[in-house]
Design a protein around this nucleic acid. Structure first.
Lengths: 209, 209
DNA sequence: TTTTGCCTACCGAATAGTAGGTAGAATATG
DNA sequence: CATATTCTACCTACTATTCGGTAGGCAAAA
C-alpha cells in the first residue's frame, strides 16, 4: 500500500527541513514568547546545534520569529475563512472558529501583541501586525458586519466585536491551561453564548434594552 | 485644602526609595514583560546603577518582579473592592472597575500569566498567581455571584464570567494602544454593554433564548 | 559611629551571531 | 558507467555583548 498517491510536487517524505524548524520554533515561541526562548532551545528541540539554524534563517532569531508568525497567520487566514464560510448561523460559525483555534498551536494573541511585537524592528512589527490583521481580525470584522447587515446581531462596532471575540479566545486558551476542569469546546460554547447573548441572558428581572 | 488627611503613617514626602524602585520596575515590567526587561533598564529609569538595585532587593530580579506584581495586586484588591462595592447596578460597578483599571499602570494579565509567570520559580509563580486571584479574580467572581443571586444576570458560571471580563479589560488596554481613535471610557462602556447584553442585543430577528 | 543608599569594578554564564569545515546526496560531465 | 562538481544540511569553534549577580568602598545622614 504505497501512499505516494500524492501529486508530483514531492510531498516531502522527510518534510522540508525548513518547515521542521518552523514547527519547533512555533511551539516554543508561541508557548513562552519571543524573549523567553533562546535559539538554543529551538535547536535542542530539533536535535541540532544553534548555529545550524542560521543555515535556514541567515538573518537570525528575528527572521525566524517573523517567519513563524507569518506562517501561522497565513494558516489562520485559511482556517478562519473556512470556519466563517457558509450559510450557518453566526453562532455555529463562531463555534467553528473556536474549534479551529483549538486545532492550532496555542497562541496568546494579547501577549504576542503586548510583549513580542515591540521587541522586533519596526518594519517587522508592522509586517506581522498586518498578517495578524488579515488572518484573524479582518475575517471576523467582515463576518460581524455581514451578520449585522442580515440583522443577526446588533449595531455594535464590528472592530470592537472582533477584538472582544479574539480576547475571549485568548481567555479560553489560558483558562484551559490553568483550570483544566471543563471540556474545551464546552467552555468555548459557553463563551460564545456569553458573547452573543450577554451575561444578562436569562436574568430574573429582564432589563433588556 | 491640605490633602494629608492620610493616616499617621508618614505620606513619604521624598517617597521611600524602595517604592520608587518598585514604581519604575512596575512601569517597565508591566509594559514589556519579565524577560524583555533587564535590571539595567530599571536602573537607568531611576538614574542609578544596576548593582544598586541589589541594595533594595538583595535576591535580585525575580524578587523585584514578585514584589512589583504583589504590590500591584494588593492595590487592585483595594481598588476592585471599592469599585464593586455599593448598591449600584452591576453595569455601573463594572464601569467603575474599568475606570479603576484605567487609573492604574497598564497591565496585560493574559500576557503576564502566559509569559511571565512560567519564568519564575514555581513557588513564586504560585504566590503571584494567588495574589492575582485574590486581587482581581475573586472580587469579580463574588460580584457576579451576588448579581446572580439578585437576578441581575443569568446563571453562567461566575468563574467564566470573571475570566471573560478580565480578558475584555486586557483587550481594552491593548485596543487603546493600537487604535487610538475612541475615548477610553467610551470604549469601556461599549465593551461592558457587550458583556452584559451580548452582540445580539438590538438585532433585527431577536433569537433571544 | 552606625546605618542608609548608592557607587565602581568585577565575574561567570548565557546570548545572538560569524567563520569555516565536512559528510553525503544530487547532479553534471567525461 | 565512472568520475568530478555542486548543493544540502548540518557541524565545531569562536567572538562580542549582555545578562544577573557579587564584593567591597564611600559619602552623607542619623
Amino acid at each position: 500500500m504505497t501512499l505516494d498517491t500524492a501529486v508530483h510536487t514531492h510531498p516531502d517524505p522527510i518534510a522540508e527541513p525548513r518547515q521542521r524548524v518552523l514547527d519547533a520554533a512555533e511551539l516554543l515561541f508561541m508557548e513562552r514568547g519571543y524573549n523567553a526562548i533562546a535559539l538554543r532551545d529551538i535547536a535542542d528541540a530539533l536535535g541540532m546545534k544553534q548555529a545550524s539554524l542560521y543555515y535556514h534563517f541567515p538573518q537570525g532569531k528575528e527572521e525566524l520569529y517573523v517567519a513563524v508568525a507569518e506562517r501561522a497567520f497565513a494558516r489562520h487566514y485559511a482556517g478562519m475563512a473556512a470556519a466563517l464560510s457558509g450559510n450557518a448561523t453566526l453562532e455555529v460559525r463562531l463555534n467553528r472558529v473556536a474549534a479551529w483555534f483549538g486545532s492550532q498551536p496555542r497562541m496568546c494573541l494579547m501577549g504576542m501583541v503586548h510583549a513580542d511585537l515591540p521587541a522586533l524592528h519596526p518594519e517587522q512589527t508592522r509586517s506581522v501586525t498586518q498578517s495578524a490583521f488579515l488572518g484573524l481580525f479582518r475575517p471576523l470584522v467582515e463576518a460581524f458586519a455581514n451578520a449585522q447587515a442580515q440583522g443577526e446581531i446588533g449595531t455594535a462596532e464590528p472592530n470592537m466585536l472582533a477584538g472582544a471575540f479574539l480576547a475571549l479566545l485568548d481567555a479560553l486558551s489560558i483558562g484551559m491551561t490553568m483550570s483544566h476542569t471543563p471540556e474545551r469546546m464546552t467552555m468555548a460554547a459557553e463563551l460564545i453564548n456569553l458573547f452573543l447573548n450577554g451575561a444578562r441572558a436569562g436574568a430574573a428581572h429582564t432589563r433588556e434594552a
